[in-house]
């Protein structure tokens, strides 16, 4: 169940950032940061009002981290990455997030680096498929 929620949060972060960055007065940085702040407070509010959990701040931070990572994936340029590739990147990121990131706790940029690796994987897959089609 947790794995599925991580995938959903990552996809939400990626798609929301990708869409919002296209709007006037927005760019990828503003979209990613603003959405993460909104997501954090939304989760915190839900935890406090609906669940009344004592460790709500930690839970909100954990889910905001997942969303934040997803938003890095969504910072990809639309002319290079379609929604299809964005979905593949998000799934790759989820796997890296759950396997690799616990080992890199406390190291700045690890989240963004994981997003970069997942985007690079999906890009490589696209290049490979294009070459196979051409052959």
């Amino acid at each position: 169940m947790t794995e599925l929620l991580v995938v959903i949060a990552t996809l939400a972060g990626a798609f929301a950032t990708y869409r919002l960055a296209k709007l006037p007065r927005f760019n990828v940085i503003r979209a990613s940061s603003l959405l993460t702040i909104l997501f954090y407070f939304s989760v915190l509010l839900l935890q406090n009002v609906l669940v009344s959990e004592s460790r709500s701040s930690e839970t909100a931070e954990c889910w905001a981290t997942v969303f934040f990572g997803g938003s890095f994936v969504g910072m990809s340029a639309p002319h290079r990455f379609s929604y299809y590739l964005l979905t593949i990147s998000s799934i790759c990121f989820t796997i890296i997030f759950m396997v690799l990131l616990p080992l890199l706790e406390g190291i700045g940029g690890a989240l963004g680096c994981s997003a970069f690796i997942s985007v690079a994987i999906s890009h490589s897959l696209r290049v490979m498929v294009d070459k196979l089609k051409g052959a």
């Binding site: 940029g109 963004g112 997003a115 690796i117 985007v119």
Partner: peptide, 15 residues
Amino acid sequence: EGFGGRLGAIAFTAV
């Protein structure tokens, strides 16, 4: 250019 997570990778390299 246009790769998501590029900025994070730069930060990770520096750290």
